[in-house]
């Protein structure tokens, strides 16, 4: 806060409407004081604070350096490196548009992830268990898989009636491939003994798939889900640039073409936040589903 208030802004930086970065710091400051207060009464939060304190301090330090280099002394081209005040100002000024963009992107992602995820699981399981299916599917995955989903855009845009559908298709593809590969790989690596045990109890094929194959392959499936999540964000941004009327990717592209780099940065921050939230969800989900792995592998 002191750094932000005491060092005057470089005259080269265009002025913002208000000290938005300072507001953010104030919010952060109040929050951390609150957490500190709670930590005196709560053992768990206290422990967490001790372990994650240095990282937070480091983050603030980085923000300070960025603030000094870009904002206060304007050591880098002002056009491309706006002051933090102006970046965080965007969250206030553009909040409605950004909100809509996030919602639109989230919807797109959800559709793509749901379709791609379930299709990927299905094909992965079929490839893993069915030799004939694997034989015919293998060249297909080998050819389609390595092609970046976004490079389908010209074809896809003419195939689908709306660019929205095209975007869903590309995200679906980017999710489908890693999940298919990791699921089928996971199934193929299951020890034969697990199936033989089930055989000696007279288990049916479907029962073996559901109660031996899938649980045993689940760690690998989750790996696929992680790849799919990060991949789907990359595809999302590119797909939205092609003709969507809303979404973070569209927003980034639009603001870049208007040379409003403060808005671009704000969009990027938002994107990072979204991606992290998605990954966090996945981690919590994994923790629930793969609780048994704790102690078997380095968690």
């Amino acid at each position: 806060m002191l750094v932000d208030r005491l060092i005057p802004l470089s005259p080269k930086q265009p002025a913002s409407n208000g000290p938005c970065f300072f507001y953010l710091l104030c919010i952060l400051g109040v929050l951390s004081l609150l957490i500190l207060a709670v930590s005196f009464f709560n053992e768990r939060i206290s422990e967490k604070l001790v372990s994650s304190g240095p990282v937070f301090a480091g983050g603030i330090l980085v923000l300070n350096i960025v603030n000094i280099v870009c904002g206060k002394f304007a050591l880098l081209p002002v056009l491309f490196f706006p002051s933090l005040d102006r970046i965080f100002e965007v969250f206030i000024n553009d909040r409605e548009l950004l909100g809509e963009c996030v919602l639109s992107s989230f919807k797109l992602l959800l559709y793509g992830y749901a379709i791609g995820g379930s299709l990927g699981l299905l094909t992965g399981i079929l490839i893993g268990f069915n030799k004939t299916f694997s034989y015919w599917m293998d060249p297909f995955t080998k050819i389609i898989g390595p092609i970046p989903p976004t490079s389908w855009s010209p074809l896809v845009l003419s195939l689908f009636s709306t660019s929205y559908q095209a975007a869903i298709f590309m995200i679906t593809l980017s999710v489908w491939f890693p999940i298919t590969i990791m699921t089928s790989n996971g199934i193929r690596n299951i020890s034969q003994a697990y199936f033989e045990v089930a055989d000696t109890f007279g288990a049916k094929k479907l029962y073996k798939i559901l109660h031996v194959g899938i649980p045993a392959a689940l760690p690998s499936v989750f790996l696929g889900l992680f790849y799919a999540t990060t991949g789907s964000f990359v595809t999302l941004i590119t797909a939205e640039m092609f003709g969507c009327k809303l979404g973070i990717g569209w927003y980034l592209n639009w603001q870049k073409s208007m040379m409003l780099y403060a808005n671009v940065y704000a969009g990027l921050i938002l994107l990072a936040l979204l991606c992290n939230i998605a990954l966090k969800f996945l981690f919590v989900f994994r923790e629930k589903a793969l609780n048994w792995q704790k102690g078997v592998i380095k968690w």
């Binding site: 020890s191 003994a193 697990y194 033989e196 045990v197 055989d199 000696t200 109890f201 007279g202 031996v212 649980p215 045993a216 689940l218 793969l290 048994w292 792995q293 078997v296």
Partner: peptide, 17 residues
């Protein structure tokens, strides 16, 4: 294989999950 013949393997082969 059938349930009338149990099999005790060399390794326990319990399902870790």
């Amino acid at each position: 294989p059938g349930a009338d013949r149990g099999f005790a393997f060399q390794q326990s082969n319990l399902y870790p999950w």
